[in-house]
């Protein structure tokens, strides 16, 4: 794909041979090529618009470096801008001044919250931490069973009160339980919800107010299309997220949602999910994501 983008940019540039400066007019055609590539990678149309403006501002006036092909130089500008927007360094989890530190999972249905909760627990356990998982999804059939099965696999306890107790109460008692058991991390799994579902968003807001988590991690499927922008905006406005986890990156989606999530919330992507197994969690590296979105 990067080759495709490269070739198209080269073609766009051939028409401009001999020009020694990137100008507002001679980068219009290459900008169009980049715009299409980003939309093809599922970056939200609105985010693409802002991003292209950023690239334009950065590129215009640059001298073409002798010995470097202008299309290559232009790609470098695009790539650098992508890395810049996505946050140039990897951001660790926020810990509470006093144990336990609390992580609240949030997101649409089926994005990978429950799996990511277990992955995080294992990740923390491997750092000699003592995590507790809390099962507040009383809606999805066998959701608690799913978390308990994963908990057994990784040897991390799961706090559950069945499906007849209010999720806010479960979360609250889960945190209290972690305190009494001397756990230093609590990971609260929640039911999937649409950002337009007022009742369910209200519930999540109430869980947050009640347990005061250090982290609210929005779990986003890397295959998400244009909707990534809407859902991020609403979750951030109504709940307030501190970061995101991008899942299913073991697939071959280009993952443009990453750019939308980051640009719209301003919050860092902290981890990526790279498989169905509980070990498949990795830190997020903006450079790698930029290359992937551009198809490099």
């Amino acid at each position: 794909m990067f080759e495709a983008l490269s070739e198209q940019l080269e073609a766009a540039w051939k028409k401009l041979r001999g020009q020694d400066k990137l100008t507002a007019s001679n980068i219009q055609e290459p900008l169009k090529v980049v715009r299409r590539a980003l939309i093809d990678a599922d970056v939200s149309v609105q985010v693409v618009r802002e991003f292209i403006q950023g690239v334009e501002t950065r590129a215009v006036g640059k001298e073409v470096i002798s010995g470097v092909r202008p299309d290559q130089q232009f790609i470098k500008v695009v790539y650098d801008e992508l890395v810049q927007v996505m946050g140039t360094e990897q951001v660790p989890l926020i810990t509470a001044p006093q144990s336990p530190s609390i992580i609240l999972m949030a997101g649409l249905q089926g994005t990978g919250k429950t799996t990511a909760a277990a992955k995080l627990a294992l990740y923390l356990k491997k750092q000699d931490k003592k995590p507790l998982l809390v099962a507040t999804d009383i809606y999805r059939p066998a959701a608690i069973d799913q978390l308990q099965t994963l908990g057994r696999q990784i040897g991390v306890p799961v706090f559950a009160l069945g499906t007849d107790v209010n999720p806010v109460t479960i979360a609250q008692q889960g945190v209290a339980h972690a305190q009494s058991e001397g756990c230093d991390w609590v990971i609260v799994d929640t039911a999937g919800r649409l950002q337009i579902d007022q009742a369910m968003m209200g519930e999540l807001a109430q869980i947050k107010t009640t347990i005061q988590p250090q982290e609210v991690l929005l779990v986003v499927d890397a295959m998400t299309g244009q909707e990534a922008a809407n859902l991020t905006r609403t979750f951030h406005e109504q709940i307030g997220i501190t970061g995101a986890i991008l899942t299913k990156l073991d697939g071959d989606a280009r993952g443009g949602a990453a750019l939308s999530v980051r640009q719209i919330s301003g919050q860092p992507i902290k981890f990526i999910g790279t498989g169905e197994k509980v070990e498949a969690l990795q830190p997020f590296y903006p450079e790698r994501m930029a290359s992937r979105i551009l198809g490099m």
Binding site: A41, G225, Q226, L231, A253
Partner: peptide, 11 residues
């Protein structure tokens, strides 16, 4: 297919 899926759906 999930309605939130982007271009990967075609693949």
């Amino acid at each position: 297919l999930d309605a939130t899926l982007g271009q990967n759906g075609l693949r």
